[in-house]
Every structure is written in C-alpha cells, then in structure tokens.
C-alpha cells in the first residue's frame, strides 16, 4: 500500500480534484464529473485510516516518480513537477483522522478577486502586494480546526445606575439611583472553532470566522484532492485553553446584555464555569497568501466557504508621506481660495 494517495479519473486516468462550484469532483483533463460514491468505487482501495500508517517525510509521486518532500504537517499537496494532486495518507490516520469538514465554496479565481479588491482599498500598501505574481501565489488549504462543544455556567454581579437630569429655576438637578444587579445563567455552545495549526496566526484566523455550519459534513479523504491540507500541531488540550477564554467572554457578554434600562453598569464580581467539553477534529477551507515585505511575513487569509478576508497589511512609509503631503496641499489651497470667498 503506497503512502501517497491519488485520485484518478476512471475515464481518462488523469488527476481528479474537488471543484468548489460544482461541489463534485472534476477531471482536469476530460472534464468528467464524479460524486463521492463514483470516486470511491473508481479508486478501489480500502483505506482503513483508523489504524496508524507508517509516516515518512519523503514521498514519490506515482505519476512522474518525483520525490516530494513534505514538512511535518503537510497532509495534501501537489507534485512540483507534474502538478499531480497527492494526499498523504499517514497524515490523516489514527488520531489525525478528522471527523468533520466543510468543503470549499470559493474557487481560486474568486479568492484572487476578493484579495485584489481588499488590497486595493489599503492605500498605504506597497505596490508589490498588488502585483499579479503575488496574487497568483494564493493557495487553497484545508486548515486543521478543533471544534468544541461545552456547557457554561456564568454569574455576574455589579453596580448599575439610573441617572435622571432636569432643570428647575436656576438649577440643574441630577438624580442618581444605585442598584445591585445580579445575573446568572447557563448556556450551551456548539462547535466553537480553535485553529489547530501553529503556522496560522490565531489573531487573523479569528477574523475569518464564522463558518456556516449548515454545510458541515463527515470527513472523507477525497475532498482533499486538489488542495493542500495541514494536520494539526496544536493538541486538543492546548486548544481548549483558547476556547475557554473565548467562551468566558461569550457568557459574560450574554449576561451583560440582559442588564437593560440602566445608564451605567459595572461588573464587580464574576464567576464562570465551563464543563462537559467535547471536541472534534475538522478540516476547514481557507485560502492563503503569504507575502514577504522587508523581512517580515504578511499573511492574508480568506475563508474558503464564506469568502471573508483578513490579514495584516504592511504600510509603505513613502506612500504615507506622499499622501500626507498631497492632502495637506489640497486642504491648504481650499482654505485659501475657499476661505477668501466667505470673508
């Protein structure tokens, strides 16, 4: 049994990849389309991923024989030479077998357009980011996520005021009523996502949320074909700590939102308890662009299902200065000529 899995078109033998628009698999050569069942019978190999498979960092592309070097977390990749899609089975086996996934809905072209539109608005971005070559580097990747379910108990207590002012005669009156406000409640949270890859900056990954979970489906390796994929390198218990922080804020905000009819409210005490945590390992679609500017990596991430984009744009000092001077000139001239109209 080979370590690398490739999905082939039963009609012409070329590589088959998942098409986000059709939500089916499409042969890049003869344009035939296949659904999941048809693909499974075609490849005809029983993949028992519940047993761990021997792991290697060096693979051979079964189409052209080239050596593929994968780094520790790469789970699906392309052959550099013949562009054949390969899925590295070991990376999806044993504890690395994902339970759920959301398929790509955005094509690579659409992702490029989203990025182009976004970077256009950033007027101080260095022009190299808007270059075609940079934009073409966009890659579709299945990112490893931990999805948590949990039950949370929250309790907040604080001081609230109701303020009323009125005027009578020569005086302005202020009446303040003070209250002790307590709220307690519980909530169930489902599929709270925490990114499981150290390679992907959490601050940016948080900004492409949320995914539409109506489209969540059971994992199957065929979906990986045509995309890159990464397995997790953040263990579930580590991810759970990030999840707890998120959920604590959720329940606190939720309870706060029930305190209405006051002018101010300050929390003096709070207690939150999170229990019954369950987690699932899932593959979620993202598009990545990694740009280097002045020795720093700037990563832009697009949600592969919803198209939401986030990222940190670098600022070109030259553009800033140019803009600043130009704007100052315009304002100066309009003060001069416009002001003379009114004096």
């Amino acid at each position: 049994m080979s370590a690398v899995k490739e999905y082939r078109c039963p009609n012409c033998g070329a590589g088959v990849g998942f098409d986000p628009i059709l939500q089916h698999w499409k042969c890049s050569f003869c344009n035939s389309e296949f659904n999941k069942n048809q693909l499974k019978t075609a490849s005809d190999i029983k993949d028992n991923l519940d047993e761990p498979v021997e792991d290697l960092n060096l693979y051979h592309c079964s189409s052209c024989g080239a050596e593929l070097i994968a780094d520790d977390t790469t789970s699906a990749t392309f052959c550099l030479y013949c562009r054949n899609h390969s899925v590295i089975k070991s990376r999806f086996s044993g504890r690395f077998k994902p339970e759920k996934l959301i398929t790509f809905r955005i094509t690579k072209e659409q992702a490029k357009d989203i990025y182009k539109k976004w970077i256009k608005k950033k007027i101080f971005a260095p022009s190299i980011f808007k270059n075609k070559e940079e934009i073409d580097k966009i890659t579709g990747v299945y990112a490893p996520y931990w999805l948590f379910d949990c039950i949370t108990n929250g309790y907040i207590e604080g001081q609230a005021t109701r303020v009323r002012t009125w005027t009578s005669g020569n005086y302005k009156y202020t009446n303040t009523k003070y209250y002790r406000v307590v709220r307690g409640g519980n909530s169930k949270y489902s599929k709270v996502p925490v990114d499981g890859s150290n390679k992907l900056d959490d601050n940016i990954m948080n900004l492409i949320e949320p995914y539409n979970y109506n489209a969540i489906t059971d994992f199957s390796m065929e979906y990986m074909s045509g995309f890159f994929a990464e397995k997790y390198d953040v263990e579930a218990h580590e991810a759970e700590m990030s999840m707890r922080k998120k959920v604590e804020k959720f329940i606190e905000d939720r309870l706060r939102s029930t305190v209405v009819g006051y002018s101010t409210f300050n929390i003096t005490q709070k207690s939150i308890n999170i229990s019954d945590c369950a987690h699932k390992y899932a593959m979620m679609p993202v598009y990545l662009i990694n740009n280097k500017y002045k020795e720093k990596n700037h990563i832009f991430i697009i949600n592969g299902q919803t198209g939401k984009i986030a990222g940190e744009t670098p600022i070109s000092l030259l553009r800033q200065i140019g803009f600043g001077i130009g704007l100052a000139l315009i304002i100066w001239l309009s003060i001069g000529f416009g002001g003379a109209l009114f004096v």
Binding site: Y155, A160, Y179, R180, V181, V182, R183, G184, G185, N186, S187, K188, Y189, S190, R254, L255, T258
Partner: peptide, 10 residues
C-alpha cells in the same frame, strides 16, 4: 441553549 437562572435588581 441560553437560560437565565438568577435575576436580581436591588
């Protein structure tokens, strides 16, 4: 899933 158990405005 959200249930408010304790509500006090004193």
């Amino acid at each position: 899933g959200f249930k408010l158990d304790v509500v006090k405005d004193q």
